[in-house]
């Protein structure tokens, strides 16, 4: 399977987790592309819906956000790697997630009893979330896992898994368990 890792690190805080993730994905048979988002210029989504009603499937902003949307549209597994930020994802990761809108259709669907949008392409990617915290924090971890589950609904993802690691965590075991859960 073809995996895309959106690396939302703002510094070096996710370095160990990324290495463990790459190894686990390789062992699970995935071909992995890592996109270090802090090195990409991605303008904020303008909320214009041009990608839905004018330039169907492509953002009106011509920058690295288009490459990210293309990579996501073509992958089998989408991975969020991020420092857990107020329980959510970092601004670096979110700038890419917001620009995923072209990969979604404007049309509504009923998913799990709620209103969501249809995925534009034939198959939705599976979604994995790996959050990094400087110390154990149950509340932040719960918010993060809920957020990944919610995002999976928005992506119509057929499978999802999320975990949070700290410096004391067994990174290799956690990454391997995540890779197994979505493979």
């Amino acid at each position: 399977m073809n995996a895309v890792v959106l690396d939302g690190a703002r510094g070096t805080e996710c370095r160990g987790a990324l290495a463990a993730l790459q190894q686990a994905l390789a062992e699970a048979g995935h071909t992995t592309e890592v996109i270090p988002l802090r090195e990409r210029t991605i303008a904020p989504c303008r909320g214009c819906f041009g990608c839905w009603v004018t330039t169907a499937g492509e953002c009106v902003i011509d920058d690295a956000g288009r490459q990210v949307a293309r990579a996501i549209a073509r992958c089998d597994l989408l991975v969020y790697l991020t420092p857990v930020t107020f329980g959510g994802v970092s601004s670096e990761l979110k700038k890419a997630v917001d620009r995923m809108l072209p990969d979604i259709l404007p049309f509504f669907a009923r998913v799990n009893g709620e209103t969501h949008h249809h995925w534009r392409y034939q198959k939705s990617p599976r979604l994995m979330g790996l959050g990094v915290l400087p110390r154990p924090d149950r509340e932040a971890e719960n918010i993060f896992k809920t957020l990944i589950e919610r995002n999976a609904l928005n992506l119509n993802a057929p499978r999802t898994a999320a975990a949070v690691v700290t410096p004391e965590s067994d990174l290799r075991a956690t990454a391997a368990a995540l890779a197994k859960a979505v493979t």
Partner: peptide, 14 residues
């Protein structure tokens, strides 16, 4: 925005 805030808001809050 995708179950959270628009990216610039998160950057500002950071």
């Amino acid at each position: 925005y995708v179950d959270s805030f628009p990216a610039p808001v998160i950057a500002f809050l950071e």
